[in-house]
Write a protein that binds this DNA or RNA. Structure first.
Lengths: 236, 236
DNA sequence: ACAGCATTGAGGGAAATCCCTCATTGCGGA
DNA sequence: TCCGCAATGAGGGATTTCCCTCAATGCTGT
């Protein structure tokens, strides 16, 4: 009865106090479908890299028994790039030809090799992360996919809640100068124009904008405009 | 067994060919939890107002037997504004004091009056819509919320797939493609990333953005974000 | 048939942004 | 008093955006 179990797990994950409990929940549930490799990472589209922060990596991802570190995983798995282009979970399969690994996105993985389910996680600002599940003999049926998506997303939310609680203190307010400068940018001024208007050097304006981006947790100034408008840091 | 039914419904909704089937699925499932009023609307990157397009309104939303039309519903239900500020489904309750309706967001609705569950739907660009369920004697337990969220979002996806298939007329000066690209920029993507995501060349994205700037009469893309948000060409 | 416009793509070069780091000043709180 | 932080500025280099132009589709409406 994966459905009942899934809903119970989601409820439990919402109030989980313990990272190991979150891992155990996903490990156990996904395990019953044949998945034994796990990756959870934040991707918020807010960083230069696709992956902003790795929450959890576990399992024999590359078939050679090596324990993966974050960088390795990212570099060697192009599936993680594909995540920014989709709107729904997708299956992938890895086939090894000679010494080369070939990853493909497929409707239903079958046959030899490592297969997986990649689950994007969305939020108010767009892509926020992903849950990646893998294994060699996986259940790739629609019910499995649906249940795993439900539980995987709940696990992601729980993991983020627990791990980003202390790690980040993101929602600092913008300083007055920062709001002022961002408002000018929103009004269509270039950095050099703002510098002239405010009697600053272009460098200073640039530095302020970088600080603004970091504070708002966004990748580009254009996105900073949108986020700041939503947060009411600047006027619409 | 709400869990099994939910997963089966989601699978069915993914391939539904028929709007009435989608409605029947949600009506039946939510009905078993005491919900008998339904609203599905898109809120995404394309139109004026918080609500871009209403997919479905059904039920006695205002207790006086009147059939609601879209505008009325939007104007009279402030809960729909609140949707832009949350990251997760929430319950609300409506109490009537004299001739005045008071809406409140609550952890668990109880007592007299109309209660409801508001389910935001997120995608790569952020908030994409919402599913609103209401009733007078509703099940507001966590399992019910989780199952309804799962099915509600699947119903939303199905409804959008079926209804947005045969096009809609752009109300603004920006073309559909232009709004789409600008939305991605507002979500923090670079031109090259957008090109990859949409399968275009970087040149094309760049050309679209120049055209957008010219059309909106702005100098920079950052300003275009603000103007487009204000004009409701893209989502906040 | 033909004009208009959306969509796509490009060359070539100028300008702007963005990244890292480091440093100084001045202010308010522990 | 000293730490932290807002505010300012810079060096130096890597990317990205932006500007002009031109052109080929394909669809729509007159």
């Amino acid at each position: 009865m994966p459905g009942e179990a899934a809903i119970g797990l989601v409820a439990a994950l919402e109030t989980a106090e313990d990272i190991s409990a979150v891992k155990a929940a996903l490990r156990g549930f996904a395990g019953s479908f044949g998945y034994d490799r796990f990756v959870l990472f934040a991707a918020s589209a807010a960083r230069d890299e696709v992956i902003a922060r790795i929450y959890w990596v576990e399992g024999n991802w590359f078939g050679d028994g090596t324990v993966v570190d974050a960088e390795t995983y990212i570099r060697r798995c192009p599936v993680n790039r594909h995540i920014v282009e989709v709107q729904a979970p997708f299956f992938w399969t890895k086939t090894t030809r000679g010494s080369e690994d070939l990853y493909r996105v497929v409707p239903t993985p079958r046959g030899q090799g490592v297969h997986g389910l990649q689950i994007p996680v969305f939020g108010p600002l767009g892509l926020e992360g992903a849950v990646s599940l893998g294994g060699e003999r996986i259940d790739a049926s629609p019910p499995a996919r649906i249940a795993l998506t439900l539980v995987g997303r709940a696990a992601f939310a729980a993991m983020r809640r627990l791990l980003d609680a202390q790690a980040e203190a993101p929602v600092t307010d913008l300083s007055g100068r920062e709001r002022e400068i961002l408002s000018w940018v929103a009004a269509g001024r270039r950095q050099s124009e703002i510098a002239a208007a405010l009697g600053l050097s272009g460098r200073t304006v640039e530095n302020h904008l970088r600080r603004i981006r970091r504070r708002l947790g966004v990748a580009t100034t254009a996105q900073a405009i949108r986020v700041a408008i939503r947060r009411r840091d600047i006027a619409t």
